[in-house]
Write a protein that binds this DNA or RNA. Structure first.
Lengths: 213, 213
DNA sequence: AGGTACACGTGATGC
DNA sequence: TGCATCACGTGTACC
């Protein structure tokens, strides 16, 4: 799964990038002059009278070399951290891809791109269907003209729906929830595309009927 | 957009990786011994009598060095090709990501992973809704019990639908397309979740009615 | 100026 | 055996 972390060409690729772990690499092992430099530094601290003595050319060169070395090591460390981050991201990304056989970096990138496009198309398709459905539905729900006539406690509701499918059961259930007892309900098709719904109800509790639209 | 191709640290990062374009890099420019080796080789070809002469140690060393050099150059070229491929894939991938500000490799990888997860969740959500809708719909379309009674040229159809929304208009339209003249159609809710549809029709042409329960 | 990111050439490793 | 891939240290550029 995580081949990115398994290769250890120089035998010093550690999780924490500890400098102490360097051993077999001639490029990165601590040069011999380091110890000498540190010893010189300690010596100066131990004998304050010598601090203001101008360091000789050899010592100066060593100090310069040391600071350069430390700078370079910093650079090496930073680069190593960056690579580790990239490797980790590669692993995370590849773990999201389906049917992943080769764990190539190139393959991971390519498959990720293909997979994203595939998902985008899928989403687009699904949302297209969803959209047209909701358009159909909302135009069916919002459009109908509703006419109400009363006579005593009786109520005549006429719904004139333009679209294919209004949720008749929902309408009837909501009617009942309003405290209206349904006496009869008839539906008739009209002009091939519209539906006339006629509901006769009886008010059996005291309510106020709000006309919306 | 394509920062991956813009950095030219050694001033020899070319699109076609032409070796001729190498100029300022001490690591990759053709060493001085190359010309000598080629001259030696040409000399041997021009004077066949000298071919079987054992080459001296210096010439042998040069030839060995040359072949090694060519091998190394092959390696360099292959690695360069690989890097170019990776960079290209990075560009392709990043071009698919929305709202991409930083074009970091690390950022591209992270954003790609996040985007994929986002899309996956989106698809999952959409398909969940789709699924439950189609389940509702199909159970509403397939479940209803239908009872038909005839009396002369009259037809009484009773549809007992379990679910929320059957496409009543569709049923009525198809009824008419079967050559049935609709006399009346009444719908009544029943037990809060079901709908009883009663259709009275008259057969006005000679047809054969198939029962597709 | 220091930090971040990159491409490079190189040696190593696995098929 | 080549060939492809990798991680590494390094030099460089941009902010």
């Amino acid at each position: 799964m995580n081949q990115y972390q398994m290769k250890k060409p120089y035998d010093h690729q550690m999780e924490d990038f500890s400098v102490d772990s360097f051993s077999s690499d001639s490029y990165t092992e601590t040069p011999s002059f380091i110890d000498q430099s540190f010893q010189t530094h300690n010596y100066c601290l131990q004998e304050p009278s010598n601090i203001k003595q101008p360091v000789n050319k050899k010592q100066l060169l060593m100090l310069q070399t040391l600071s350069l070395y430390l700078l370079v090591q910093d650079h090496v460390l930073a680069e190593r951290k960056r690579r580790a981050k990239l490797a980790q991201r590669f692993i995370s990304l590849s773990s999201l891809l389906p049917e992943l056989k080769k764990m190539d970096k190139a393959t991971v990138l390519e498959d990720a791109a293909n997979y994203i496009q595939e998902l985008q198309n899928h989403v687009k398709e699904l949302e297209r269907k969803k959209m047209q459905e909701s358009v159909e539905e909302s135009s069916g729900v919002c459009d109908p003209e509703i006419e109400v006539r009363t006579s005593g406690s009786s109520l005549l509701v006429e719904i004139y729906s333009q679209k294919n499918c209004i949720s008749l059961l929902k309408v009837l259930r909501e009617t009942q929830e309003l405290g209206l007892s349904i006496i009869s309900c008839s539906t008739m098709p009209f002009a091939e595309t519209t539906l006339l719904v006629t509901i006769v109800t009886q008010v059996y509790i005291d309510i106020v009927v709000y006309s919306s639209s």
